Computed example of a mutant assay.
Amino acid sequence: MELFDFPNKEIWEKRRCWVDDEMQCIEDGTDCSSHGAALFMDLQACYCIGAWLAVIVLSVSVIDAHLRETEALDDKMKTAKLLEEYYEGNDDINWLRKLRNQYVHLNLDNPILEVNDQFDNRTNLEADATKAIKMVIKTLSQSISLP
């Protein structure tokens, strides 16, 4: 299984280059949250290794940290309200927040995640993780410092 195998250098490099290419939308002068940037570094590593659930879970944390520090300037606002008010992407940010919450908060009556998903659902997990990291990059690119 990819998740437990030693990283394939070619796959790692392909994913790292993809993230770098996506990051080209972030111009000089972007006001990036230091906390969010630190979390994003781990997010990149998770993406490159193929830790798809970690990418999804961590994506909300990166977006939250960045928007709190650069847009809302408020560390008390609830995440749902923060995302609703400050996320400027075209994607449904609540999709990501709700997916993350389903992974993090177990629903005993309707579990969304089982161990077999790590083996049988890798393609869907990767697609969701890729969408999530694109949303993060969009968020990081929306805060431009004014001179």
Rank of each mutant, 00 (worst) to 15 (best):
P7Y: 08
N121M: 13
Y103S: 07
E22A: 09
K9H: 10
A129T: 06
V19D: 03
L67F: 08
C46Y: 12
L96M: 07
R97P: 01
Q44E: 12
C32F: 04
S141R: 08
L58Q: 12
H35L: 13
I112Y: 10
A38K: 05
L82M: 05
Y47I: 02
K9T: 14
Y103T: 07
D20T: 06
A72Y: 02
T139I: 05
R122F: 00
K76M: 06
I56E: 03
V136P: 04
M41I: 05
L125S: 01
V55A: 13
E13R: 13
N90M: 00
N121C: 08
T123F: 07
S145F: 15
D31E: 13
N101S: 11
A72V: 09
N90T: 00
N116G: 04
W95D: 07
D75L: 06
L125N: 00
R97V: 08
L106G: 03
D20S: 05
V62C: 10
L99K: 14
N121I: 04
Y103G: 06
I63D: 00
L113E: 10
R122W: 00
D5E: 12
I112A: 10
T139W: 01
W95M: 01
V115E: 08
V57I: 13
S33P: 09
W12H: 06
D91G: 04
V55G: 04
S59E: 15
C48G: 15
K131D: 03
A129E: 11
A38L: 08
E85V: 09
D28R: 12
R68H: 14
A80G: 07
W52S: 07
I49T: 00
M23W: 14
V62R: 02
N101C: 09
L108C: 06
S34L: 07
L108Q: 07
F40M: 04
R15G: 05
L73V: 08
D20Q: 13
